[in-house]
């Protein structure tokens, strides 16, 4: 078996199961995730409700499933914004013949990087009101400088290789070199970074919803389920445990995949990774 393969398989199976459950929730859930039954609140897990019911008597499993598409897509779209915004900027910063532009891009990235996701989300909420897209934008903006740095570091390492120099001598433009030669060669690095950022995105979405900065109160959300059950820990711990376990397992699965990917990258690029550590 290749290095890292077992991690990728285990992580992939778990994440696949979670995604499947989320997709399934679009057409079927074990119960209506929004239907309340106050007289049956905080029930322990049973045949009728596999994970029990919450403080309004709603089915916890149904709500966990219904929250999956939102959480995963918020994290995915957020990271995509970071990727699409950060990678071209990083390539420009690394390859531009004018050092001033590179400097401006990097310092600009530093300024963005100084704002934690939470502050970003609070700023957006204060200016434009709440909603799931606040979380998307906050995660997206936060990820732009992350990809900017990783891309620039990777591209700088490549730009001194002989094949790049020969491409230059052959008369290819900088833009073509960036797209045709450098991007494919740093793609594994970027995919690895994206998977790490994705797991952070899932955590960030849960965190933002927990603080009431994410999805609206009626929308099922893992983070909000945690927040709602906080004062009920003593009475009905399963209300908090269920979403907590789901968040941990999801993040773990994505991290396993990322770790497997890292191990499969060849040694030269592993070195390169060492220089491009921009995530946190």
């Amino acid at each position: 078996m290749k290095r890292g393969q077992s991690q990728i398989i285990i992580g992939g199976v778990v994440l696949g199961a979670i995604i499947l459950a989320g997709l399934l929730s679009l057409i079927w859930t074990p119960a209506d995730p929004l239907a309340m039954a106050i007289n049956q609140r905080m029930q322990m897990p049973s045949a009728g409700a596999w994970l029990g019911t919450d403080h309004f008597g709603r089915d916890i499993l149904a709500r966990l499933m219904a929250a999956t598409p939102l959480t995963l897509s918020v994290a995915f779209i957020g990271v995509s914004i970071g990727f699409i915004g950060g990678v071209p900027l990083g390539l420009t910063a690394a390859l531009t013949p004018r050092p001033l532009i590179g400097q401006i891009l990097m310092r600009g990235g530093d300024v963005f990087f100084a704002f934690p996701i939470l502050i970003m989300a609070m700023l957006i909420t204060a200016g434009f009101g709440g909603g799931a897209w606040v979380a998307i934008l906050a995660i997206g903006f936060f990820n732009i400088p992350v990809f900017l740095r990783v891309t620039r570091a990777g591209a700088l390492g490549q730009s001194h290789c002989t094949y790049i120099q020969s491409a230059r001598l052959a008369g290819k433009s900088t833009a073509r070199i960036a797209i045709e030669h450098i991007f494919p060669n740093i793609a594994p690095l970027l995919i690895l970074q994206a998977s790490i950022q994705f797991s952070l995105g899932v955590l960030a979405e849960a965190g933002l919803s927990y603080l009431g900065l994410g999805a609206s109160p009626t929308t099922p959300s893992w983070g909000r389920m945690l927040a709602d059950s906080q004062t009920l820990m003593g009475l009905a711990p399963h209300l908090a445990i269920a979403p907590g376990v789901v968040i941990v397992v999801t993040v773990l699965a994505i991290n396993l995949i990322a770790e497997g990917l890292r191990q499969r990258l060849d040694p030269r690029q592993q070195n390169l990774l060492g220089r491009g550590q921009a995530w946190r």
């Binding site: 929004l34 309004f56 009431g212 609206s216 109160p217 009626t218």
Partner: peptide
């Protein structure tokens, strides 16, 4: 949240603004 769920039963969609 409870009122939003009850209004949903009579065909009203309620958006909550905290």
């Amino acid at each position: 949240e409870i009122i939003a769920a009850q209004l949903r039963n009579i065909g009203i969609t309620a958006q909550l603004i905290p």
